[in-house]
Design a protein around this nucleic acid. Structure first.
Length: 404
RNA sequence: GCGUAGGUGGCGGAGCGGUCAAUCGCAUCACACUGUAAAUGUGACGCCCUAUGGGCUACGUAGGUUCAAAUCCUACCCUACGCACCA
């Protein structure tokens, strides 16, 4: 296969969404320009079935490289997932069953396929699981592997330092994570690994091991994580922000993007869309000149929805969004439930899991969070009975149509 | 193994016999204002009910003392730190 060495394309690969390239950006450029076919891989966490737009960044880079003709591999970390990443406080995560792993892989392929062309026969993407080699290792293999690192190197990591100074536990098996991930590089014998900035340590472990086992240079490309430039907090994090999932339904996806903080606009454009860098800098300029960020965000939402759905759905999502939230109309595609005439609203809504509990329902209704969409009036009676068809708005984002 | 300090709600962290479903901060949810942004203000934030009241389950686990326990006692489990052990 002929390798494309277009300097412009290479430049984009080397700079867009890239945090750091190790050992050196320029030597990787040389490799990419040499016409040699490189073996490149990206590792993905198999613990959950959902990917979000932050993950997409890496796959976009991978796809660019694939298009140049390089060999790309997606590694599904099923073995590491079985043990669980104990980076948080909770150490023991229940191991994933084979069925869950299988299922995760399936949904996950579907999501990735929106970005990476998995079916292209000319340059096929290889998908591998790391249980293939990791599950076969015995204790002496592990000892050999571990002897490539010192405890000091492990302990040096920020996350461990922090926990040590806070007197929080650091479990021994946590040290195995970089080892296992690093060994993937050896097993695959790769030239380059791409991963989020938080994976740098693990990726570098792979670099060390690749040198030790195969005597080969492995490049490491770390990519920027989606963070709020103002607060420094991760954007795609359940506890700190909104998670825009790649398989979110189009209206939902659109809405979630609209609720991203304004400051995040440009980074998300760069990392999660195909909009050219020149154009993004124009957008940035117009924002600085005072263009309403909302309109820019609509553009962003449309770009992203187009990637994971299509242009038509993006258009629809926009219309729906404007109609519902700007004009206060009833959105399309709302949830519908059917109940007996005269039954209590509370039970209708709780039994259909729209509201988690009766107590919560009471809270909402006394706060004036439930209103009739047709009349615009608030419903404040906790014992409200459903006598005829009604469309309700519950809180900010929930709409439901109840028929009798 | 020994010693010391700990284990409280999604997280951090108070409380140390009754007024504790548990101060406070973060997160979350709702309302107001808005651009489903941010900021700000207000309120809510275990569950259930025939609801300005009542009930049930919760403060590592299991027992016990007491009219009454997150708070006291006993045992166990877990964590950190120190000591001891270290072919």
């Amino acid at each position: 296969m002929k390798i494309d060495t277009d300097p412009k394309k290479i430049e984009e690969i080397l700079s867009r969404s890239v945090q750091n390239i190790l050992p050196l950006k320029e030597s990787l450029r040389k490799e990419l320009s040499s016409g040699k076919r490189l073996k490149i891989y990206i590792g993905a966490d198999a613990t959950g079935p959902k990917l979000h737009i932050g993950h997409a960044t890496n796959f976009m880079i991978l796809e660019r490289l694939r298009k140049l003709g390089h060999e790309v591999i997606i590694l599904f970390g099923d073995f590491t997932a079985k043990i669980g990443d104990p980076s948080g406080k909770d150490s023991a995560r229940k191991p994933l069953t084979d069925r869950e792993t299988k299922n995760n892989l399936k949904t996950w392929k579907k999501q990735v396929s929106k970005i990476v062309n998995l079916k292209d026969r000319k340059n096929k993407v290889k998908i591998v699981k790391n249980s293939k080699w990791l599950s076969k290792m015995n204790f002496s293999d592990l000892v050999k592997l571990a002897s490539n690192f010192t405890v000091q190197q492990m302990v040096e990591r920020d996350m461990f330092q922090k926990r040590i100074s806070e007197n929080k536990p650091v479990f021994l098996h946590e040290f195995f994570y970089p080892l296992m991930q690093g060994y993937d590089s050896v097993a695959l014998d790769v030239d380059l690994e791409i991963g989020g900035n938080d994976q740098t340590f693990n990726m570098l472990a792979g670099r060390t091991l690749q040198k030790a086992y195969n005597n080969k240079e492995k490049y490491v490309m770390s990519t920027t994580l989606l963070v709020n430039p103002k607060t420094g907090k991760k954007l795609m994090n359940k506890s700190e922000g909104v998670v825009v999932g790649l398989d979110d339904e189009h209206h939902d996806m659109f809405g979630k993007i609209m609720s991203l903080p304004d400051e995040a606009l440009i980074p998300v454009f760069i990392d999660c869309t195909y909009v050219s860098l020149e154009e993004i800098s124009k957008i940035k300029e117009s924002l600085e000149k005072g263009e309403n960020p909302r309109d820019v965000k609509i553009r962003l939402a449309k770009e992203i929805v187009t990637i994971y759905h299509d242009a038509e759905k993006a258009e629809k999502a926009e219309e729906n969004f404007i109609a519902t939230f700007k004009k206060g109309r009833i959105p399309e595609d709302i949830q519908e439930i059917k109940v007996e005439k005269g039954s209590a609203l509370s039970s209708a809504v709780v039994s259909n899991k729209i509201v988690p509990s009766n107590t919560e329902f009471r809270r909402l209704i006394t706060a004036g969070a439930i209103s009739d969409m047709k009349t615009g009036e608030k419903i404040t009676d906790p014992n409200f009975k459903i006598e005829s068809e009604i469309v309700l708005k519950i809180g900010k984002k929930t709409f439901v149509k109840i028929t009798v």
